[in-house]
Simulated assay, not measured.
Amino acid sequence: MHICFITNEFPKEGFPHGGIGSFVKTLAVSLVKKGFQISVAGINYTPNNETEIVEGINVYRLKKSTIKGFSWYFNSKALNEKIKQLHKENPIHIIESSELGLAFLSKIKDIKYIIRLHGGHHFFAESENRKINKWKGFQEKRSFSKADAFIAVSQYVKKHTEQYLSYNNKPIAYISNPIDTDFFKPISENESDNKILFAGTVCEKKGIRQLIQAFPFVKKEIPNAVLEIYGRDWFFPDGTSYIKMLKEKELPKIEKAAEDVCFKGAISFNGIPNAYSEAAVCVFPSHMETQGLVAPEAMSMEKAVVFTKLGPGPEAVEDYKTGLLCDPYNPKDIAEKIIWFLSNKEKKEIIAKAARKFVVQKYGLNTIMDQNIVFYKSLLKSED
C-alpha cells in the first residue's frame, strides 16, 4: 500500500515544526517498518525544491511561492503536479491531510482521501471565541466535501467539529495520535527537583501567559523553582512577537520571579526527551487541544504532568491517578497543582509510573498503528 501524507510540517533540521509534523513522522516511520510505501508532500520553508529519504520515508518539499495574493494557487498547483507524478510512478492508495489540506487538491480516481481531525479553523475559532475567517472557512468546507473518510484524534474534536462542518455521511474513526514509547522512555537520572517545564508553541491558546502568572505563587512555596519554556514563537497579525510581548508586559508583573523564567527557544524533535527528562513537573495549561501530544509524551517518560481540564484533557489524564488537571484560565489553580507535585514526591512518583502504563496501553505505537492500518484497509476494501 502506498500512503501519501500532505503536510508542510514534516520535521526539518533547523526549522520549527508542530504537533502534526511530529505525528506524521512517528506514524510514517512505523508504517515503513511494516512494509508500507510512504510519501510526504508539502510546501517548503524556502523557495526551492528538496527531496530526501528520512528513515525510509520519501519526503518532497516543494518550492514555496512568494507571489503575493496568488501563492495559494501556485502552491496548490505544484502539489497537484507532484501527486500526479508520484501516482504515475507508483500508484497511491491513500492520501491523508489535516482539515484544510484537500481544499485545492484535484481528486484522482482510485485514491481514497482522508482528513485527520487535528483541529481546524472552525474548531479553534470556537475555542478562542473568535469569528470565522471567510477564506479559511471556505477552504475547510471545500476540503471536507472532498474527503472519503475522517479520523478524529479525540472524541472531543469529533463532537465539536461536527457542530460546524458536515462529515457528509462518510466513514469516521476515532484513533488517537500515537506516542513512540520507546523513544519517550524514562531517563530518571537527569531529573532536577525544582525544574518546571513547558513545551509547545509559545502562544495564548497554549496557556503560557497564565503559567507565567502562576509562577510567583509557586516561588512563594518552592523558592528554588525555575520555569523553562521550550517552543517556537508565535506572531500577531501585525508581525510582532508573542514572546516579546510576554517579556515586556508579563514578566515585569511577576517582579523578582521573572529572574527564574527562561525562554529556551524551539527544540529539535530528537532533543525533546532530554528536555522532558530534566523536569520535575511538566505543565501544559492549554486553553484548547484536539488531543495534545506533549502531555502523553511526557507521561510516557514517567513525568509528573499538569494538563488542562478543558477539551480532551480528561481523555488523556485521570486526575490524581495519571496526572493532574488544572483550570488553564486560573493561575492560582495551575500553581496549586505544580506545588502539590513538588510537595508530594512519593505520590508524584506513583502517579508518574501509572502515567506511563496508561500511555503505553492507550497511545502505544503498535496499537495505534494497527488501528490505522485496519481503517485504511477497510476503505480500500469497500471499493472492491
Rank of each mutant, 00 (worst) to 15 (best):
S71I: 00
S71W: 06
W72G: 06
K77T: 00
K77P: 00
K77Q: 12
A78L: 08
K82T: 09
K82E: 06
K84V: 12
K84M: 07
Q85D: 14
Q85F: 13
Q85M: 08
L86P: 01
H87P: 03
H87V: 15
E89Q: 11
N90W: 02
N90S: 14
P91E: 03
I95N: 08
I95Q: 07
F104P: 02
S106Q: 12
K109F: 00
I111Y: 05
I111P: 02
R116C: 04
G120E: 08
H121G: 02
H121K: 13
F123G: 03
F124P: 00
F124G: 11
E126M: 10
E128C: 05
R130P: 01
K131T: 06
N133G: 15
K134R: 11
K136A: 15
F138C: 14
Q139E: 01
R142M: 12
S143R: 02
F144T: 10
F144N: 05
S145W: 13
A147F: 03
D148V: 04
V153R: 01
Q155H: 12
Q155Y: 04
Q155A: 11
Y156Q: 08
Y156A: 12
V157L: 10
V157S: 14
K158A: 12
K158D: 10
K158H: 08
K159V: 07
H160C: 01
H160N: 15
E162A: 12
Y164Q: 06
S166Y: 10
Y167I: 08
N168A: 09
N169M: 07
N169V: 00
A173F: 11
A173C: 05
Y174C: 13
Y174L: 15
N177G: 01
P178E: 13
T181G: 10
T181R: 03
K185M: 09
K185S: 11
K185P: 07
P186G: 10
P186R: 10
P186A: 09
P186N: 14
I187C: 11
S188N: 13
E189K: 09
S192V: 01
S192Y: 03
N194S: 14
K195W: 00
L197V: 15
G200C: 01
V202S: 00
V202Y: 07
